[in-house]
Simulated scan of single mutants.
Amino acid sequence: MFLQFLFSGLTAGAIYALVALGFCVVENSLRIVNFAQGDFLTLGGFFMTTFLLSLKIPWPLAALCSILAVGLCGYLLERIALRSAKTHDPLTLIFITIGASIFIRGLIKLFWGKNPRIFPPLITGEPIRLLGASLTRESLLILAVGFFCVTILHLFYRVSRSGKALRAVAYSPRAAALIGLPVGFLNSVSFFLAGALGAVAGLLIVPVTGVSFDTGVILGLKGYAASVLGGYGSFPGAIAGGLLLGVMEALVAGFISSGFRDVFAFALLFCVLAIKPSGLFGTHEEERV
């Protein structure tokens, strides 16, 4: 039973980690919390159902189109809403992302309705048996994609010129502008990446639980809790926090009660903020998230 709960928790934790990575990407550029991140996940799921079921596009191409479409939505959010605010006040920008979250959910209800959507698993096959527990091929896909995304992001930020430019903007936007970096465009790129990560999480979760217009609300909050647990802004922390949160949730639901599953996640968030705001991999303990 323990091993089965562990597999279930790792699968859910990989989704939380992908959402947490989106939070970290925005934090590393604008130093704000993007509360529309969970809605990027919802958009990814609905775009995937449209491309796959309505337009009959093969699933690899449908997944790519969904990721690009939601990435473009993230780009437009920064370009139209955040940059038009003409302010760098973090609190104002955070409120704009909250408004954007409500707006996106309204658009989803308008275009796709309130009914949940689901489609068959992207990969099929017999579950893998290990010591009496089973791990589905879909769960393996979710875990593999999660680790692939964090590896690519780490290499992008550490090796590529664009990634180094994004890190420079995060460290000091004014200094970055003085040396000629396009700060506004790079901020938009970070939101594009955040949208793409949300879409990846969305298209992976639809075959497992389905997606409805408000799916991203709870998953967004859990992704935020995972990012805080791991150390807000840290990519390794996002992965560790997501997997740890998923496993602990599964164990609590399995051995205590499923009714405590969501309560545990937010109780853990409050405890981390109160005791160690920097999280597992954070470096600035004097600042609260």
Rank of each mutant, 00 (worst) to 15 (best):
F2W: 15
F2Y: 15
F2P: 07
L3M: 15
Q4W: 06
F5A: 14
F5D: 13
S8F: 11
L10A: 04
A12L: 15
G13L: 04
A14Y: 02
I15R: 06
Y16E: 12
Y16N: 11
A17V: 04
A17Q: 00
L18M: 15
L18F: 05
V19A: 05
A20M: 03
A20R: 00
F23S: 00
I32N: 07
V33H: 01
N34T: 03
N34S: 07
T42Q: 07
G44E: 00
G45M: 00
M48N: 05
T50K: 03
S54Q: 08
A63S: 12
C65K: 01
I67R: 00
A69W: 03
C73H: 02
E78F: 06
E78K: 08
E78N: 10
A81T: 08
L82C: 04
L82A: 03
R83H: 10
R83F: 11
D89Q: 09
L93N: 01
I96A: 02
G99M: 11
G99D: 12
S101Q: 11
I102E: 13
R105H: 03
G106C: 12
I108C: 13
I108A: 12
L110A: 14
L110I: 10
I123E: 11
I123C: 10
R129F: 12
G132R: 12
G132I: 12
S134L: 10
L140T: 07
V145Y: 06
G146N: 05
F148L: 15
V150Q: 05
V150S: 11
T151H: 09
I152Y: 05
F156D: 02
R158V: 11
R158E: 15
V159W: 13
V159C: 04
L166H: 06
L166E: 08
A168P: 04
A170H: 09
A170I: 03
Y171H: 14
Y171F: 13
S172M: 09
A175V: 10
A177Y: 08
N187P: 02
F192D: 07
L193Q: 01
L193C: 02
G195L: 00
A199W: 01
A201N: 10
A201S: 14
L204E: 09
T209Y: 07
G210I: 02
V211R: 02
S212P: 05
T215P: 05
T215Y: 05
T215E: 03
G216E: 00
I218E: 13
L221T: 06
S227T: 08
S227A: 15
V228D: 05
P236R: 02
A238V: 01
L243P: 02
L244C: 06
L244E: 03
L245I: 04
V247T: 10
M248R: 01
A250W: 06
L251E: 14
F255P: 09
S257P: 07
S257K: 14
R261K: 15
F264T: 10
F270V: 15
I275D: 06
I275S: 07
